[in-house]
Design a protein around this nucleic acid. Structure first.
Lengths: 239, 239
DNA sequence: TCCTCATTTGTACAAATGTACAAAACTTTA
DNA sequence: TAAAGTTTTGTACATTTGTACAAATGAGGA
C-alpha cells in the first residue's frame, strides 16, 4: 500500500516546509473558523497556494486531512497537560494545588507545547467547532485520546476537594471546558458586551479569568453532600 | 410581492399543523445536531415528509429557513428571560438575588416559555452550533436580539456584586453561556466521564449544577480589585 | 548524463447541492 | 358547482462538491 511512502516522508515533512505543511496549516485555520462542511478541498488548496490534487495526494480524503490535524496535535497537548498536572499534584496547599491543576488543564489549550507556533488555541478552537458540528471523525479521536487525561484531571481535582461528589466535579469540569471552547470560538463577544473594556482575544487575560472563575466554581458547596446519585431540588422548569 | 400571501397565512399556520411547521421543526432538529452546512434542503424535506420544493415555497432559501427559526424563538425566549429577571431583581437578599438572576438566565434556555414544546433546549443548542460554525445569518440576529438582554443581565449581576469590575462579570457570564452551550451540545460526555453516575441530558440536574457553579464563579474575588483595565500576571503561555 | 522516485499539476467525473418553475392537487369562496 | 386561491409535487439546471488519474515537473544517485 502507498502508506509506506507517506510514513517515510513524514520525518522529512517535519523538517522542510512543504506544501504538506502549508495545507495542514490552512486546513486547520479554515476548519477552525468555518467548520468542516463549510470548507471545500478547493478552499484549502487555494489558501495553501496548492493544487486541489495535492491535497488528495497527501491526505487521500478530506476526513484523512482532519485526522492528520488531530494526530498532529493530540499527542503534544496531552503530554504537556500531563507534565503540568504531575507538577500541580506536588503542590502541598490544597487551594494552591487546585488552582495549579486548573491551569495545567487550561494552559496547553491556549498555547501548544510543541514546535507548532501558537497552534494550541487554533487547535482547541477546531475541537470546539468539530464537537458542535457533531463530526464523527473528531468524536472518535477525542474520546480515545482525551478521556484518559480528562479522568486524570477529574481525579486530581477530586483529591483536592474530597468532600465534593465526583459527579459534581465532572459537571464543573465540563462547564470549564465549555467556557474554554466558547471563549476561543467567539472572543469578540466579550469585547462587545464589555463595551471594549475587555479583550476576549487576549489569551493571557482569558486564562486568568477562566482560572479564577473555574477554581471558585469547583469550590462551591456540593448540591448533594452525601449521595452520589442526583436529587431533584427546587427546579421550576416545565419541560 | 408574494410576501403578502406569506404574512396572511402566518396566523393560520400557527393554528393548524402544516407542512410548514413540520419543515421548521425538522430543520431545527437537523441544524441543531449536525450544523447548517451538513444538512441539505433535501434532508430537511425528507425528515419533514415533504417535497424539496415545499421548502423553497415556504422559506424561499435555506438561509430564509434559518432566519424563520430564529424569529420564531428569539421573541418568546427573551420575553421569558426578562420576566424572570424582573422578578429576580425584586429579591432582597443579595446572595439569593444573584442565584435568582442566574436561574432567570439559564431556565428559558432549557425550556421554551412559548407553546413550542420543549423547543428551548433545541433552539439553544442550535444557537450554540451556529455560533461555533460562525454562521453569518445567526451572528447578525443574535447580536441584534440578545445583546440588550445580555447587558440587562450583566448589569443586574453587577448590582448584586458591586465590588467586582463589570468587565470581569462579562467574562464570567460569557463562561456561563459557554458552559450552557456545551452541556446542550455534548451531554453524553458528562455521562461518560462520570461513568454513568450523572446524566448530562437531564435538564433539571444540568440547571441545578450550572446554577450552583455559576453563582460561585460570579462570587469569586476579582482578579483586579481596582482598575478596570486588565493586568497581566504569572501567565507563562508562549503565544 | 540518464534513470528512478516523490511530488505537483491539470483535468475529468459522478454525485450532491441550492434554487427555479410548471403542472397537479387541494381549499376556500361565491 | 365553478372560479380563484394556495399549497404541494415533480423535475430540471447550473454549481459545487470530493475524489481519481494521467501527465508534467522536480530532485538525487549511478
Amino acid at each position: 500500500m502507498r502508506m509506506a511512502s507517506k510514513s517515510t516522508s513524514n520525518d522529512l515533512a517535519a523538517r522542510k516546509p512543504n506544501l504538506r505543511e502549508a495545507i495542514l496549516c490552512a486546513a486547520e485555520e479554515l476548519f477552525a473558523t468555518n467548520g468542516f462542511n463549510a470548507v471545500s478541498v478547493r478552499d484549502i488548496a487555494q489558501a495553501a497556494g496548492a493544487n486541489p490534487g495535492s491535497v488528495t495526494y497527501h491526505f487521500k480524503t478530506k476526513d484523512g486531512l482532519l485526522l492528520e490535524i488531530y494526530n498532529r496535535h493530540c499527542g503534544p497537548m496531552n503530554r504537556r497537560r500531563c507534565e503540568l498536572l504531575a507538577a500541580a499534584r506536588r503542590v502541598r496547599d490544597l487551594q494552591d494545588r487546585l488552582e495549579a491543576i486548573v491551569r495545567a488543564y487550561v494552559l496547553p489549550a491556549f498555547s501548544s507545547g510543541s514546535d507548532l507556533a501558537g497552534g494550541g488555541a487554533r487547535f482547541t478552537r477546531l475541537r470546539a467547532v468539530m464537537s458542535a458540528e457533531g463530526n464523527e471523525v473528531a468524536r472518535r479521536i477525542i474520546a480515545q485520546t482525551f478521556d484518559d487525561t480528562s479522568h486524570a484531571f477529574i481525579d486530581a481535582i477530586h483529591e483536592s476537594l474530597p468532600h465534593i461528589p465526583r459527579a459534581e466535579i465532572v459537571w464543573r469540569s465540563h462547564f470549564l471546558l465549555g467556557a474554554l471552547y466558547y471563549t476561543l470560538v467567539t472572543p469578540e463577544r466579550v469585547a462587545r458586551l464589555s463595551r471594549g473594556s475587555a479583550d476576549g482575544a487576549d489569551a493571557g487575560n482569558a486564562i486568568e479569568q477562566l482560572a479564577r472563575a473555574s477554581v471558585a466554581s469547583f469550590q462551591a458547596p456540593p448540591l448533594d453532600p452525601s449521595a452520589p446519585s442526583r436529587r431533584r431540588s427546587m427546579t421550576q422548569n416545565k419541560t
